[in-house]
Amino acid sequence: MFSLYKKELQSYFYSAFAYIICALFLLAFSLEFANGISNIVTPKYTFSFSNIFYNNFFYFIFLIPVLTMRSFAEERKSGTETLLLSSPISIPKIVFGKFLAIATVFLLMITLSFVYPLITALLGQVYLSSLICSYIGFVSIGLLCISIGMLMSSLTDNPIIAAVTGEGAMIVLLFLDRFSQSDMIQSIPLLKSVFSIFSTQTRFNMFSIGIIRLNDLVFFFTSIAVVLAWVVIVNARRRWNRG
C-alpha cells in the first residue's frame, strides 16, 4: 500500500497539478485575509481567523473535486486499472492508499496557510485555542469532501465528469445546510433533527468558536469511513458490471 501511496503523491507533484491547487487555495485565502484586514476600520467588524476560515470554506470546497477527479477515473481511462486489479493488493488497500495520498496533498495545502496566523502573530495577537479548533474543523470537512470526490471519481472513467459531478456533490453539501435552516424544515421537528445531522457548516461553526464536540468528530470520522466503504463497494461492483 505504501508503494501506491508514494506513486500517487509522485503523480501529484511531478505534474503542476498539486502546485496549482495549492496556489489557488492560497490565492483565495490571501484575498479573504486582505479583505479581513481592510475591514478592521469598521467598528462592527471583528477580525478573526474563524471568519476567514468560514468564508474560505466556500472557495476551497470547490477545489477538492479537482484534486480527487483523477483518482479512479484516470486509471480506467489509461488502462492502468488492470495493473492494480491483477496485482496482489486488495481494493480496500487501493482506496485507502489513494485517500491517504490526496489527504497528504490537502494537508500540505492547509499547512501553507499557517503563514497568515504567523504574520498576524508577529504584528498582533492570535487566539491559539480558536485557531487550532478552526483548523481541526477545516481538516475534518476537507477529508469528508475528499472521500466524496473519490466516490464521484470511482463512478466514471472520465476525469472531467468526475470533477463536474464532484462539484455537484459539493453544492448539495452546501445546500443541505441552507435547507435545514429553512422555515419549512425548522417547523417540522423530525425533519429538523434529521437535516441538522448532515449540516456540516453548523458543525464547523462549533469548531470555529473553539468548541470541540465529540459528536462532531464522530460524525466526520464515521461519514468519511462510510463514504470510503462506498468507494470500495463501487469499485468491487464495477468489476461485475464491466463489459
Binding site: K7, Y14, S78, T80, L84, I89
Partner: peptide, 18 residues
C-alpha cells in the same frame, strides 16, 4: 498499463512494491 508521467525506473519500482 503505464503511468506515463513517471520515469521508467520509478515505475518499475512501484510495480515491484505493489
Amino acid at each position: 498499463p503505464l503511468y506515463t508521467d513517471m520515469k521508467v525506473y520509478e515505475y518499475l519500482k512501484f510495480v515491484a512494491g505493489i
